[in-house]
């Protein structure tokens, strides 16, 4: 299927290059369920790439393999030219269910990655405070997760991932557990963050609008076993105002195009 001239996104070959590369990644779970098959992908530095596909296509599995939390059955993940054997300090993960420690304050949660690295309390708290402010939670440092709304909790999760100053941020459906309004605001803030942080983001979502709205590159995966169906460059200017972007014809057309591509997978 080709994309009409109206949107004209540049389709790149799925040849791996970039700061993170997936080479021939396959994953078969115990019990014989094959989640991923022969994934070759490159994630360009400083860009946001979205993994998009129907539920059960192995998007999260791929993200966790990149994170080093799961081992692939075949293939290698290369980050900065080195093969991944487990989690590493150059990658940080943002969890779908936030994964905050309920017994720890916001400050301690955000500083947790630094705490594990053995940084002194004074130093790590100073860093944590600055990122708490950056995600808009200044004043909530001493609160506990159960006192915060879902959106605020995910901001804590984001601040924790930013605080360790990893080059690659892996985000597993970070907005799926928050309500629609919060979600929109969150997406806008995320775009702002990408502009200012100059990090590489890999983002998993099942929302087409969200994928197109935040991404430089969208990877479409086929249903189980997940394989790369298409890689689409959005070519959208994420620097402009959110209102402009949401009304942008190219944005709207691309959402429609991707929907047309994905619907063939739905029974």
């Amino acid at each position: 299927m080709s994309i009409s001239g109206a949107t004209d996104p540049v389709e790149t070959a799925t040849k791996p290059d970039g700061i993170v590369q997936a080479r021939g990644i396959s994953k078969t779970y115990d019990g014989g369920i094959q989640a991923l098959e022969g994934i070759d992908l490159g994630f360009p530095k400083g860009e946001l790439t979205t993994l998009l596909g129907p539920s059960g296509c192995g998007k999260t599995t791929l993200l966790k393999i990149i994170a080093g939390l799961l081992e692939p059955s075949a293939g290698t993940i290369i980050v900065n030219g080195r093969a991944v054997t487990g989690p590493g300090p150059e990658r940080a993960f943002v969890f779908q269910d936030f994964a905050l420690m309920p017994w720890a304050s916001v400050l301690r949660n955000v500083a947790f990655g630094l705490e594990l690295r053995g940084m002194s309390r004074h130093e790590r708290h100073a860093i944590a405070r600055s990122y708490i402010a950056k995600v808009g939670l200044a004043g909530f440092e001493e609160r506990y997760p159960h006192e915060l709304s879902g959106g605020m909790r995910q901001r804590v999760g984001l601040a924790r991932a930013l605080a360790v100053d990893a080059e690659v941020l892996l985000m597993d459906e970070p907005f799926s557990a928050v309500d629609e309004q919060t979600r929109r605001k969150f997406q806008e803030d995320l775009l702002h963050l990408i502009q200012s942080e100059n990090k590489t983001f890999i983002f998993v979502t099942h929302s087409i609008e969200e994928a197109v709205y935040v991404s430089d590159q969208v990877v479409l995966l086929t249903p189980r076993p997940g394989a790369v169906s298409r890689v689409i460059r959005t070519g959208l200017d994420h620097g402009g105002s959110p209102e402009e972007l949401r009304r942008n014809k190219r944005y709207l057309d691309m959402v429609e195009e991707i929907w047309q591509m994905l619907r063939e997978y739905l029974v």
């Binding site: 966790k64 994170a67 080093g68 939390l69 989690p87 590493g88 300090p89 990658r91 940080a92 993960f93 969890f95 779908q96 269910d97 994964a99 420690m101 309920p102 017994w103 947790f112 990655g113 594990l116 690295r117 924790r160 360790v164």
Partner: peptide, 29 residues
């Protein structure tokens, strides 16, 4: 104990001892 708490700690470089002392025992308290 929420498995994603364990994944979280591992993703930030927790050792085996960290997992027990900083996550498992506290979460099960």
């Amino acid at each position: 104990v929420n498995p994603s708490l364990l994944e979280m700690a591992r993703s930030f470089g927790a050792s085996r001892l960290d997992l027990y002392a900083r996550i498992l025992l506290l979460a099960a308290l």
